[in-house]
Nucleic acid binder design. Sequence first.
DNA 1: AAATAATTTTAGTTGAGTCTAAATTTTATT
DNA 2: AATAAAATTTAGACTCAACTAAAATTATTT
Lengths: 222, 222
Amino acid sequence: MGLTYAEENYLKAILRLSTPPAMVVSTNAIAAHLDTSAASVTDMLKKLAEKEFIIYQRYKGASLTDHGSRIATMLIRKHRLWEVFLVKSLGMTWDEVHEIAEELEHIQSDPLIEKLDSFLGFPKFDPHGDPIPNAQGKYTLRAQMPLSDLKPDQEGVVIAVRESDPSFLRHLTEKGVNLGTHITMNGTDSYDQTILISIDQRQLNLSGKVAQNIFIKLTSNI
Amino acid sequence: MGLTYAEENYLKAILRLSTPPAMVVSTNAIAAHLDTSAASVTDMLKKLAEKEFIIYQRYKGASLTDHGSRIATMLIRKHRLWEVFLVKSLGMTWDEVHEIAEELEHIQSDPLIEKLDSFLGFPKFDPHGDPIPNAQGKYTLRAQMPLSDLKPDQEGVVIAVRESDPSFLRHLTEKGVNLGTHITMNGTDSYDQTILISIDQRQLNLSGKVAQNIFIKLTSNI
DNA sequence: AAATAATTTTAGTTGAGTCTAAATTTTATT
DNA sequence: AATAAAATTTAGACTCAACTAAAATTATTT
């Protein structure tokens, strides 16, 4: 009695869009996220509610039940474990793996995923720095802030980036920004919101939009 | 422009059922293999012919075009490479992997499959002894015969087994029959067609049906 | 509080892939 | 060669997941 790919993708979208404290997601938000029509979303929400994966009230939006939340979390777990495999074992780059993991996450086998986890050494984070839920659905949250929020002279280490847009990730690679890269904030250009940073001794600048999608763990600044 | 899972599965079925010299597969054979109705097969054959993956004549059956054959062969390649990964890297057993590989073979990424091949060391055979096509679609055929065809006192090594039925494979494992196992034929029980063999010094018997699905490479018999 | 805008749902279609039942074509048998 | 049997195709219907257009509900603004 497995779920269809479409059902799984809807649950994943609802989890991704659920934010505390409300945890209720609107029809339009899901439609935008999945690039589909609001009418299609309404149809699917009715089905998912019928199967008790979500709680849904007409015109009010949807929220995951414990059951639905568990399924969505396991999809995230599978997605991120496969990404680790693709990068660590096969040598793919962080910009190549999201699309492939979108397919791999739907493979149905609990023994497979537990053995993959073991094979990879029970990684806690994926190649973009996102936490990997364990078999019980628990994961590590780390204190982090967008690079764009750093004040001049603050410094830190890149611990995560917004995944999934390959050209954004390739841009970072070109600039020398990777997980673990140490960055010092120099300042913001008042005209164009460009961010000035240094990596090692090297100075460079990033657009504000890019800097919002790089996440930093602060280190003691002098 | 990818194929649907259903289309891919039909092409794979046609390849599996194509036997020289005719290479033409009947509607009913496909229906039986895919456990579906003949009417559904007819519908799909029309679509595949329209897309030029097969040549199809009403009432006469279907055969793969070069294009269709290439796609089906690449599915076999992916299926068998994933099986090697599941057994060699993750430590699964040969009875567990077919069903999972049926899903994994549909993952769409050429770089992925070439890197997987390299990671595994370009294996030539899968965990059931079936040959793995290379990136050009070429594979190694080996001389082999069913265990049931051995004459008394002939001996050889198990180099392949019919894959895909988990309970058959578990049965073999229990009896101590694996790829590489050396077997001597002792004889056939005239009553019930049971096959008598020895493995090392140990004697055991197998049903005729089982013995037909174990493939042997003969070694010099005294 | 009424009017307008935005959001969401309903109604009616579509295409993929399947089904059963009936009709057609091919093959085998007398 | 005529008839019976087997194989195959056609016809019509179903489910899933999507769509557009129109209707209904909720939110916002005047």
